[in-house]
C-alpha cells in the first residue's frame, strides 16, 4: 500500500494523510470495510450449511470438521463454528458473505466425509435452504418503492425470485413490484439476504419447508 502510487505519482498513504483525496473504494478499504450497519437475518435457529450438505441431523454426525470445504471456497464464504456443540463445523453467514454458487462447486468436491453430498454437481440442484420475505410490511418493494435489489442480485433471477407487479392503490398510478421467492428453484445461497438494503434483512434464508402434497395441480 505504501509503495502503491496513483496516477499523479503521489503515494496513496500520503494522499490519505494529506488531503483525504483517495476515491471511495480505497477510502473504504482503508476504513476497514465499513460494515457496522450490518445485522443478521432472523432465521429461527437455522444454520446455513455449505452446498450439498445432507440433512441437518446427519450432517453434524458426518462432518469430520476438517475445514477442507472452507479452504476450497474462493470467496471465504464458508466459516467454521468457533464455539458450542458444533464447534469446527462449516457454516455460511450469508449476511456477511453468501455463497456465490461456483459452477464446479469446489467446496463439495473437497469434502472427504460425505457430509457434503458428492452427488451434488449442478448448482441449480443445490438446496441449502429457502429464502423468504420475513417482513412484508418492511420490504421496500412491497411498500411501492423501486428497490428489488435482492431480485436483481439473485443468481437465479426470474427463476428463484420473480417480480409480481400489481397496481399500487396508495398512489393510484404506480406499480408495486413484489419480489416473490419460488421454493422449487431457490437454492438458498443467501445472496439476496446479503444484498437486502435494510439494516435487518427482510429476505432471509431459512430451512426449506417440506412440500405438502395434495391433488391440486395449480
Amino acid at each position: 500500500m505504501t509503495k502503491e502510487r496513483d496516477d499523479s505519482g503521489i503515494s496513496r498513504r500520503r494522499f490519505l494523510k494529506e488531503g483525504a483525496l483517495a476515491p471511495f473504494a480505497l477510502a473504504l478499504a482503508a476504513a476497514g470495510g465499513g460494515t457496522v450497519y450490518l445485522r443478521p437475518g432472523e432465521a429461527h435457529g437455522f444454520v446455513l450449511r455449505p452446498p450439498g450438505a445432507i440433512v441437518a441431523r446427519r450432517f453434524l454426525a458426518a462432518c469430520v470438521r476438517c475445514g477442507k470445504c472452507a479452504q476450497a471456497c474462493p470467496y471465504h464464504s464458508i466459516r467454521l463454528q468457533d464455539r458450542g456443540v458444533g464447534i469446527g463445523t462449516p457454516y455460511i453467514a450469508a449476511r456477511h458473505t453468501p455463497c456465490y454458487l461456483c459452477p464446479d462447486l469446489p467446496c463439495v468436491k473437497a469434502c472427504p466425509s460425505g457430509a457434503l453430498d458428492q452427488k451434488t454437481t449442478e448448482v441449480e440442484k443445490v438446496r441449502m435452504g429457502t429464502a423468504q420475505i420475513v417482513d412484508r410490511e418492511g420490504c421496500l418493494s412491497i411498500r411501492g418503492l423501486r428497490c428489488e435489489v435482492c431480485y436483481r442480485q439473485c443468481p437465479l433471477i426470474d427463476q428463484a425470485i420473480t417480480l409480481e407487479p400489481r397496481h399500487n392503490p396508495r398512489t393510484g398510478e404506480h406499480t408495486i413490484m413484489e419480489p416473490v421467492v419460488h421454493r422449487e428453484k431457490c437454492v438458498g445461497c443467501g445472496v439476496c439476504e446479503n444484498a437486502c438494503v435494510l439494516p435487518k434483512p427482510v429476505i432471509v434464508v431459512r430451512e426449506t419447508v417440506e412440500v405438502q402434497r395434495d391433488s391440486y395441480d395449480f
Binding site: L140, L145, R146, V197
Partner: peptide, 27 residues
C-alpha cells in the same frame, strides 16, 4: 411525479452527503 415513492437511490438520499471523506477545505 412520484406521489410519495422513490427508487432505492432516492430512499438513501439522506446518506449521500455524509460519506466520511467529504471535502471540507480547498486544496
Amino acid at each position: 411525479v412520484n406521489k410519495g415513492l422513490n427508487c432505492i437511490k432516492g430512499y438513501f438520499l439522506s446518506k449521500a452527503l455524509y460519506g466520511k471523506d467529504r471535502l471540507t477545505t480547498p486544496l
